[in-house]
Design a protein around this nucleic acid. Structure first.
Length: 491
RNA sequence: CGGGGCGUAGCGCAGUUUGGUUAGCGCGCAGCGUUCGGGACGCUGAGGCCGGUGGUUCAAAUCCACUCGCCCCGACCA
């Protein structure tokens, strides 16, 4: 490989397109989403339109998770949007948890319905209703299903991708013969999420158990992966629940075991939603806009051809066609040959849209048989020969992917603190700015957590699996504590 | 649901205090020409139920009443 010229791209710009993150983080967030054309506001409050670019990102998330679920033996199915209201009421904690945020249909075809239909906020109930009919024998177990769908939760305060009235997700639902199996399944699927988040989204996460008050309504135990956003707030990026026999008992989901004894099944459910797109935006983005991880980016390489005269144009575009033919099968490419936009404009636009790698090619490059590659993550430009371009690009995309993860991991680690003094914690959590993650001994008591939330607006995010095995005293109430917990301000 | 703010072109705004003829500016959009290696420029042009309803008036974007919607801040959340 020839000597590569490396230089940083000038940051001087004639006009600021996006509000800098340091100025107003949440404004930056909404502006980036709209300007990058990921999503737009819908005419209904709290709802959003996912635009083609955002949906392509979601499709890549779906494809990746789908192949992971296939590898773990899960099959896709689809259950109805409408759930009889009475179903929700069968599991006590479940109703209590979801009642305030249900959308309910009371009229159909112009007539008042005999029984109102709930628009699914999640599908445990209707799935159990069906499981009860499908499962008869231990031979029917385990039953491992997943569905991709939309769900509706009538939230008060909404944010694009993070919390909208309707959102897209996948929900896995499984039934098992033993408590050990359902526990193992819940943990296994959280592992799948961690693998996905870290190795595909380049989003480092802390896997752990949810506290009593943060756990899913109707679960015995909830697990989650927690990620740190660019403003040091926490975002729950995926959850997995061991439902025990709670729903099985409410719906009579039973099977005959080997001894011909009727048993309730043990269940799990787990979900990852379009919220994860919010995580990608906030974990990686900078003041230029999005930075998408190569493995999930709808476009991995954008080619910007540059020309002055018509004769140059023809030659440059011919070279672009050749490059496209060489790379096309292995790299997701887009060629930006729009007329009437200067190269500089296009550079900025594709950076805003977060394309990991840009390839510039113009008359000067043709003479030398070179191209210019510009990395989105480091904003470095290098000149490389056209010969051997494919392996070079593939390697660069790998480097970007791992650099993005490392950078995010370093940020999270640098903003995670061990604290034992509650006064210090309170100090840290003061003000609007989030201080990051605080790891502290905590007793696990519901009331204790409620007080902490009241006093600091921080909540327990998860009790990490990774513990050093030592014991201590609760940093808030002083009672004995066996585990350290992550506290943070959360989305 | 309580407190604060805002509705004028696709977006951002001016005009409203003190009513007056054809409602303006920037960006964006369309056409043409010159440009093109880090956000180019000129000319021409399209685009408005001034959130809605009712009232006052010779006359309402402007004054009055009601109403609808949105945004921000406080109690819930993938």
């Amino acid at each position: 490989m020839n000597s590569e010229h490396i230089y940083l791209i000038g940051v001087v710009m004639s006009q600021q397109k996006v509000t800098p993150r340091s100025e107003d983080y949440s404004r930056w967030y909404t502006e980036v989403i709209q300007k990058a054309e990921l999503a737009d506001y819908a005419p209904v409050r709290g709802c959003m339109v996912i635009r083609p670019y955002g949906y392509a990102l979601w499709e890549n998330i779906q494809d990746t998770l789908n192949s992971m679920f296939k590898a773990t033996g899960h099959k896709n199915a689809y259950f109805p949007l409408f759930i009889p209201e009475s179903f929700l009421k069968k599991e006590a904690e479940h109703v209590e948890g979801f009642a305030p945020e249900l959308a309910v249909v009371t009229i159909g075809g112009g007539k008042e319905l005999e029984e109102p239909l709930v628009v699914r906020p999640t599908s445990e109930t209707i799935i159990n209703h069906m499981f009860a009919q499908w499962i008869h024998s231990y031979r029917d177990l385990p039953l491992l299903l997943n569905q991709w769908c939309n769900v509706v939760r009538w939230e008060l305060r909404t944010r694009l991708f993070l919390r909208t009235l309707e959102f897209l997700w996948q929900e896995g639902h499984t039934a098992h013969a033993t408590a050990e199996e359902s526990e193992a399944e819940a943990r296994r699927m959280l592992g799948v999420y961690q693998n996905f988040a870290e190795n595909f989204g380049a989003v480092p996460v802390i896997p752990g158990r949810k506290s009593e008050s943060e756990k899913f309504a109707g679960a015995v135990v909830s697990y989650s992966i927690e990620a740190m956003m660019g403003d040091k707030r926490a975002l729950q990026s995926g959850t997995s629940h061991n439902l025990g026999q709670n729903f099985a008992k409410a719906f009579g989901t039973q099977y005959l075991d080997k001894n011909n004894v009727l048993q309730y099944v043990w269940q799990t459910s787990w979900g990852l939603s379009t919220r994860f797109i919010g995580a990608i935006i906030m974990v990686h983005g900078d003041d230029q806009g999005l930075i998408l991880p190569p493995k999930l980016a709808p476009t991995q390489v954008v080619i910007v051809p540059i020309w002055r005269k018509d004769e140059d144009k023809a030659r440059v575009l011919a070279a672009v066609d050749q490059i496209k033919a060489d790379l096309g099968a292995q790299v997701r490419i887009e060629v930006d040959d729009r007329e009437g936009f200067t190269p500089g404009f296009k550079f900025n636009e594709w950076e805003l849209r977060g394309v990991p790698l840009r390839l510039e090619i113009g008359p000067k490059d043709l003479e030398q048989a070179n191209v210019v590659l510009a990395r989105r993550d480091t904003r470095q430009k290098v000149t490389v020969p056209q010969a051997g371009l494919l392996p070079h690009i593939l390697q660069t995309l790998d480097e970007i992917q791992s650099n993005m993860f490392t950078r995010a991991k370093d940020f999270m680690d640098a903003n995670t603190f061990d604290v034992s003094d509650y006064g210090q914690f309170k100090e840290m959590m003061q003000g609007e700015e989030a201080a990051g993650f605080v790891r502290a001994y905590w007793c696990g008591d519901r009331g204790c957590e409620a007080q902490i939330k009241e006093e600091t607006r921080a909540t327990s995010r998860c009790i990490p699996f990774e513990q050093d095995g030592t014991q201590g005293v609760c940093f808030h109430c002083g009672r004995p504590a066996t585990e350290k917990v992550i506290f943070a301000k959360a989305y």
